[in-house]
Design a binder for these strands. Sequence first.
DNA 1: GTGAAAGCGCTAACAT
DNA 2: ATGTTAGCGCTTTCAC
Lengths: 340, 340
Amino acid sequence: MAVTIKDIARLANVSVTTVSRVINNKPEGVSEETRQKILKLVKELGYQPNAIARGLVTKKTKTIGLIIPDISNPFFPDIARGVEDSAHIYGYNVFLCNTDDNLEKESEYIRALKEKYVDGIIFTSSVPSDYQHIMELVRDGVPIVMMDRRMESEEIYGVFIDNYEGGYLATKHLIDLGHRKIGCITGPLKVKNARERLEGYKRALLDNGIEVDERLIFEGDYKINSGIIGTEKLLNDNKDITAIFACNDLMAYGAYKTIRSYGYKIPDDISVVGFDDILLSQIMEPQLTTIRQPAYDMGLTAARMLIKLIEGKKVSKKIIIFKPQLVIRQSTASVDEGVF
Amino acid sequence: MAVTIKDIARLANVSVTTVSRVINNKPEGVSEETRQKILKLVKELGYQPNAIARGLVTKKTKTIGLIIPDISNPFFPDIARGVEDSAHIYGYNVFLCNTDDNLEKESEYIRALKEKYVDGIIFTSSVPSDYQHIMELVRDGVPIVMMDRRMESEEIYGVFIDNYEGGYLATKHLIDLGHRKIGCITGPLKVKNARERLEGYKRALLDNGIEVDERLIFEGDYKINSGIIGTEKLLNDNKDITAIFACNDLMAYGAYKTIRSYGYKIPDDISVVGFDDILLSQIMEPQLTTIRQPAYDMGLTAARMLIKLIEGKKVSKKIIIFKPQLVIRQSTASVDEGVF
DNA sequence: GTGAAAGCGCTAACAT
DNA sequence: ATGTTAGCGCTTTCAC
């Protein structure tokens, strides 16, 4: 049997109230003498407060939930690490939940997290627009912060990256290099960030007097394989294509594979730009030019925001938007004019 | 205010006991009629049991802790995913804890997890041999399962890979290809798995009549940079080296970089073998020959084992050892005899 | 400065 | 088949 507050109280000849005051560092109403006596006993007996009992009365558990699609997708570990680091600093623990973008699993996790009285939840999931269970959380007063997945509602706090600008930057970079026939392999278009990146791509084209050609757009799913297939389709349908913007690095890697198998060289024949800047992008050869998302910082920020919300502190902005950054490496080159 | 068991009881004109019986699916002692009445109310009011209150009395929280060095190290996400999947199946949630192999952080997490009354803990950490706080957990009766980090104690459950055999396989493969001067970049030797891989390397050498040459061994730390530095040292000190066994894939990648910068070709001039088989190893060029660890399965297995322990079920084996597997890709080739 | 008592929401003997 | 009661370990009024 673990030692409880009662044990300490009995041994110190004081009430549990007094012990409670000491272990919670309440400054008032305990003489230095008794405080020391209690602290001594706490140490000797290795007393650890029971967070469950405490949680039952305070309704606070110092626990948050992190809901992501899949921790083994290389984009998420950095986010998770940021969230966890932030949480740890403030004395919180984090429940890891993988939904595989499955609405049902997401609901299950939400239910479980509510039953366990987490103090708040961070969502980094890319589920379509069925936000019902999320709005329900808001209504129930559970603090939540969205990441990556933008909500329409003004009610909701979140940290995001400017996906539109990311798509724009990537495309603009290619245009500046002289490319005109630029393929785009998008994420799943039911996901908002995928639509935004695509919008950025289109706008950059338009701003530079290039028409949007639907045959140059392929809807992928952010996984390697769709990069492979998408590039095949793009290459087959557009003989004059000189560049591909893959809307994440994993698909860019898929694009590499196909481009190679067609006997083309990167970037000599085809330039490629990715999105995310995961470790992979530095390891691929040639190293991938990509749009950097500061995943770790975003995780850090989201958790900090959530905890402020939980603790009733002022949160200056409801929405924090990080700026994407173009990282130029070796997968992009200017169009060799001789080609034309 | 959330709806409680009392509310349901009142509205159903029954006692809380009866409600408790129903929501916990106790088969005995509730008429079908009242059961239905209660279930209906539960649904209507959206009643969710308070897991904190339940935990306080049952001393079970349906929660486990996962302690790893760093989720952003590419080796751990798959493990974490396996653990979480397993946990989810059995109705458990998992706390993610990153220690950075820092003993102090590990202790902090253990304390926090104990305060939160997790039902058990999985350790995948590579801290040196200060096992005191772990033995303390065992003494306290907290079920724990070790992964990757082998304990001397017979008391402790765990799932591991045969690191010795992995090291042996890697080295033997190189020897079979005709290599004689084989460098080895180890993990941090305070970590047991690092020592075991090195042992496998040495034994394979010895078994094939090759002397162990300490100048061919460099102690790294499982990070990219030590692969870079280690290879520089190895290459400088041993002009006739033809192969390198990097004790994980990240260091193998570092080795690639150095080998390239010296103007050598892989595998023509230098063969490289890694360890882990993370996604990276397929993306590197040439694709890395490596020793595969079934990380996801190991996570799955560890969590299943832990939960059996928690629930008092029979666990057939205290220690489960997975077999490593040599995955031959393109970074190894037979020694060009012309070299000699 | 300190303590008594109530109660958080639930489970589990023990009655009936 | 159902209810009464005690109590899990803690915090929190309120009183002294």
